[in-house]
């Protein structure tokens, strides 16, 4: 399975009387494959999150296409779109705000299983297993997101996404709001999950060290344009890349 953004551009129009066009992405092509991690690197405002949202189907490109397993996202209907929804999941930057503050963790997880029409008596076992995968105990189920740490919430968000058994996971700076030790735990957990399940990751970050640790290949964005695409071994550091982008 693969997910590809092909020649994707995104333009926002601003202003009421005098319309100004702001191009956030220009002709970007990236491909995420199962079992591999594509790192999406770039400074703030370079269009990383916009590209992630377009790939997750949360936003539409102004031009270009998102293709999942050879089918254009715009042409997907019915069960084909449902298949895309289940197969492509996203984990957001702020772990606490990605969970509904008025739902307990247990409810947030159970409703995903309800969506999958899994009978109630089987749900407890599946949730227990999902929590074990992300290294949490069942004790968190009766708590609200505000009663958990950032790292625990991010693990819950990950467990929730994994309940759908996705093939592609878009990780939008999932460790940005966590401290260094928790970051390392989450990154190791992500690698372990990928090793076991063969999920493809799009990992967004602006930390070169994190990129090198998690990625097989890197796509670097500057001002909405791809300035580097290739294996992580050939990738220069972010600072050098930024300088190169400015000079070009």
């Amino acid at each position: 399975m693969y997910l590809r953004a092909q020649n994707v551009s995104k333009v926002y129009q601003e202003g009421l009387l005098f319309r100004r066009r702001r191009c956030v992405l220009r002709d970007v092509t990236v491909e995420i494959e199962e079992g591999h991690t594509l790192g999406l690197f770039g400074p703030s405002g370079s269009g990383k999150t916009t590209l992630a949202r377009i790939l997750a189907g949360l936003d539409h490109p102004s031009s270009g296409a998102v293709i999942f397993n050879g089918i254009d996202l715009r042409e997907m209907r019915g069960h084909v779109f449902t298949e895309f929804r289940r197969s492509v999941q996203m984990v957001f930057q702020d772990p606490e705000s990605s969970l509904n503050p008025i739902k307990t963790i247990g409810r947030s997880l159970r409703e995903v299983l309800d969506l999958l029409r899994i009978p109630g008596d089987e749900q407890a076992g599946i949730i227990k297993e999902a929590l074990e995968v992300v290294g949490l105990s069942e004790e968190v189920l009766c708590r609200f997101p505000r009663q958990l740490s950032g790292g625990q919430n991010q693990r819950i968000a990950l467990a929730r996404a994994l309940l759908l058994n996705p093939r592609i996971l878009i990780l939008d700076e999932p460790t940005a709001s966590l401290d260094v030790s928790v970051q390392a735990q989450i990154l190791n957990l992500l690698k372990e999950i990928q090793r076991r399940r063969g999920i493809g990751y799009l990992y967004i970050s602006h930390h070169p060290a994190v990129m090198r640790f998690v990625s097989n290949s890197v796509c670097e964005l500057h001002n909405g344009m791809v300035t580097f695409r290739g294996p992580v071994e050939k990738w220069e550091t972010g600072a050098e890349a930024g300088a190169r982008s400015t000079s070009t």
Binding site: R53, A56, G57, L58, T82, R85, R86, V88, Q89, M90, F92, Q93, D94, S97, S98, L99, N100, P101, I102, K103, E111, V112, L115, A157, R160, A161, L164
Partner: peptide
């Protein structure tokens, strides 16, 4: 625009479910 509503959309919950359990309670 909050992340938990976007997360619910990505998971594939129908709009009715998102409005009734995520949007209106908040």
């Amino acid at each position: 625009e909050m992340a938990f509503v976007e997360a619910a959309k990505v998971i594939g919950f129908p709009d009715r479910h998102i409005i009734l359990t995520d949007v209106l309670p908040n």
